[in-house]
């Protein structure tokens, strides 16, 4: 979307990030590294349980200390220009980052809003959390945000309670809330998965417009490769807590290098590619491995058609640079890439 931005300004740099849940010692993230530039849309794709949402929560500092331990580094350039290390940042400073420098929207709009406060109050609360404005200004601002989100009757929506709104409306409210402090990075965790397709398209459209207008970077977490291809400048593919392929969206989707990415592409239903055209859906056999009992070697090898015994089940591949400005985690990518 922002190919015209010549100077790439680094906004977020995640380096060697690992997360271990304390309750079951599961390593949900293993050595995750990527960067997001200012104004860039990065899609984070993968199956459920691959660590996509955990990555988003880690950036927001929303993995509670008692819940998960983090190691590695998440560096963010704040609005002030200050470069902050978010891993291990004191809670009171993290609080001034959340909702202010980085905002997040979640998968289930139906349960994202507090049922006992009006929509207006909840947006106003987000504004007042970071901006010292008189109450009347805060309310004007909340109303303006609802208008931007193309909500039909903003004044009525303002005084409505969440249960009076549809899922699509609630997700619009969530986006309005997330944008309230003009964050430089928005973490969107499957924001349209729970919505009807038509509503999904409207919301994605709006999000795209807002993103361009505000020059905001977006980390778009999704399992929908079509959406990722439409929206993203770059793609990160996650599998079992690791990034297995990363690169420019057009490159990755037109010529996937890692067998897992190729598998994801083939397991996607497409209109017009029916049986007659020979474009059948080819699901990846098996399921996402149990993170507590990961296979040895490449974590994908038990499901991979290209796996070679004695090699793929022994050596854990590193994320190495491949052609077209991407990186891939596969021992055999040179041999199997057509």
């Amino acid at each position: 979307m922002n190919a015209d931005i010549a100077v790439q300004e680094k906004l977020l740099e995640v380096d060697g990030l690992s997360a271990t849940f304390r309750s079951n010692s599961v390593r949900a993230l293993r050595d995750v590294s990527f960067r997001i530039d200012a104004g860039e849309v990065v899609a984070l794709v993968g199956e459920s349980g691959s660590g996509k949402s955990t990555t988003g929560l880690a950036i927001m500092g929303l993995l509670e200390r008692g819940e998960a331990s983090l190691s590695g580094s998440i560096r963010l350039v704040r609005k002030s220009g200050e470069r902050a290390e978010l891993v291990g940042l004191a809670e009171n400073r993290m609080r001034s980052v959340r909702g202010n420098d980085v905002a997040m929207i979640f998968q289930e709009p139906m349960s994202s809003l507090d049922p006992i406060y009006s929509v207006g109050d909840q947006i106003a609360e987000a504004i007042a959390a970071h901006q010292d404005l008189p109450r009347a200004r805060v309310e004007d601002e909340a109303l303006r945000l609802l208008t931007i989100m193309a909500i039909p009757d903003p004044a009525k929506c303002f005084v409505s309670y969440p249960h009076q709104l549809s899922g699509g409306m609630r997700q619009r409210v969530m986006i309005a809330m997330a944008l309230s402090c003009r964050p430089r990075l928005l973490v969107a965790d499957e924001p349209t998965t729970a919505l009807d397709v038509t509503i999904q398209a409207q919301i994605i459209d709006q999000l795209g417009i807002l993103q361009r207008d505000a020059g905001m970077a977006v980390l778009f977490v999704t399992h929908d490769l079509g959406l990722a291809a439409d929206l993203a400048d770059r793609v990160l593919v996650m599998y079992a807590g690791q990034i297995v392929e990363a690169g420019p969206a057009d490159q990755v989707f037109s010529r996937p290098t890692m067998p897992y990415t190729a598998g994801l592409m083939r397991s996607r239903p497409r209109i017009g590619a029916g049986r007659a055209a020979g474009g059948q859906i080819q699901p990846i056999p098996g399921g996402v491995p149990d993170l507590a009992r990961l296979p040895t070697g490449c974590t994908f090898h038990p499901r991979c058609a290209h796996a070679v015994t004695g090699r793929c089940d022994v050596t854990l591949p590193a994320l190495e640079p491949a052609d077209g400005g991407r990186a891939v985690r596969c021992l055999r990518w040179r041999e199997i890439t057509p």
Partner: peptide, 14 residues
Amino acid sequence: RLFVRVAKAKGLSE
């Protein structure tokens, strides 16, 4: 519940 996480994500204190 999710709305509690959302409230934290706004930058509210514990």
